[in-house]
Computed example of a mutant assay.
Amino acid sequence: MSARIDSTVPVLASLDIRESRDFYVDRLGFAERGMYDDYLIVVRDGAEIHFWLCEERRIAEHTSCYVRTAGTDALFAELTKAGLVLRPPVVQPWGMKELYVIDPHGNLLKFGEPA
Score class of each variant (00 low, 15 high):
V9P: 00
V9F: 11
V9R: 03
V9N: 09
P10W: 09
P10L: 11
P10T: 10
P10A: 13
V11M: 14
V11H: 09
L12R: 04
L12H: 00
L12Q: 11
L12I: 05
L12Y: 00
A13S: 13
A13D: 05
A13N: 08
A13C: 09
S14T: 04
L15F: 07
L15E: 09
L15T: 06
L15P: 08
L15N: 04
D16F: 00
D16H: 10
D16P: 02
D16Y: 02
I17P: 11
I17F: 03
I17L: 08
R18P: 05
E19Q: 15
E19R: 15
S20F: 03
S20L: 06
S20R: 03
S20M: 00
R21E: 15
D22T: 13
D22A: 13
F23E: 06
F23I: 05
F23Y: 11
F23N: 05
F23V: 05
Y24F: 10
Y24C: 05
Y24Q: 02
V25C: 14
V25P: 00
V25H: 10
V25D: 04
D26H: 08
R27E: 06
R27N: 11
R27M: 07
L28S: 03
L28Y: 06
L28V: 11
G29E: 01
G29V: 03
G29K: 03
G29L: 02
F30C: 00
F30K: 03
E32C: 10
E32F: 00
E32T: 14
E32G: 10
R33F: 07
R33W: 06
R33G: 14
G34N: 12
M35V: 13
M35S: 13
D37W: 09
D37N: 15
D37V: 06
D38A: 14
D38N: 15
D38H: 14
D38S: 15
Y39S: 09
Y39I: 02
Y39D: 10
Y39Q: 04
Y39C: 00
Y39M: 12
L40Q: 02
L40N: 01
I41W: 07
I41V: 15
I41L: 07
V42L: 01
V43N: 06
